[in-house]
């Protein structure tokens, strides 16, 4: 019983260290603090468990999120052509482009938020976005927001990397 929980502790802490996206690390740390409070309880230290529950699950989560506000959020919408999104989309197909965009965000110290959607491009323009990616047979089109000043750097980065398959087309939207 104790050993299983200790195993979970190791796994969560390793994932929290190795991940590139900081908001995922916050979630892993939440799970980590829950498991470690349970371990304290099994070691007959309920007062420490109480303190860990208070600090770990609410206070440190909120503190980390407030600190993450300093990071710029880079919202990327990826339009999928099929009628329904399934889990298979997240592990293949558009994954290569997503990985390159994540790499770019890590290099420029941005926090990527990648959202897969089936919605039409024109409806997506109402949301706050940084980049919208659409796929068709000839091009991969990247629409950039008018105030997106990272577009030049991203164009350069994507052209230097290994191409995904179809050529890119960059469109800077206007007001």
């Amino acid at each position: 019983m104790l050993k299983l929980t200790l195993l979970a502790l190791v796994v969560f802490s390793l994932f929290a260290v190795q991940t590139q996206k900081l908001r995922h690390a916050v979630i892993y740390l939440g799970a980590f603090s829950m498991s470690i409070a349970f371990v304290y309880l099994l070691y007959d230290a309920p007062d420490v468990a109480l303190a860990e529950a208070i600090i770990g699950s609410s206070l440190s989560t909120i503190l980390y999120l407030v600190a993450l506000q300093k990071y710029k959020i880079f919202t990327i919408y990826i339009c999928v052509n099929d009628t329904e999104i399934e889990d298979a989309h997240f592990f293949s197909g558009e994954k290569a482009l997503e990985r390159q965009l994540s790499k770019f965000c890590a290099k420029e110290e941005l926090e990527p938020q990648i959202i897969y959607t089936v919605e039409d491009v024109h409806k997506l323009f109402e949301h706050p976005y940084a980049i919208i990616v659409t796929f068709d047979k000839q091009y991969i089109t990247l629409y950039a927001h008018p105030e997106n000043y990272k577009m030049q750097a991203m164009e350069q980065f994507l052209l230097d990397e290994k191409p995904v398959g179809t050529p890119y087309r960059f469109i800077q939207m206007e007001d």
């Binding site: 908001r23 916050v26 989560t61 938020q113 706050p128």
Partner: peptide, 10 residues
Amino acid sequence: FMSLYIQGKG
């Protein structure tokens, strides 16, 4: 707090 943070785009 976490879900509000993600909904408000940071």
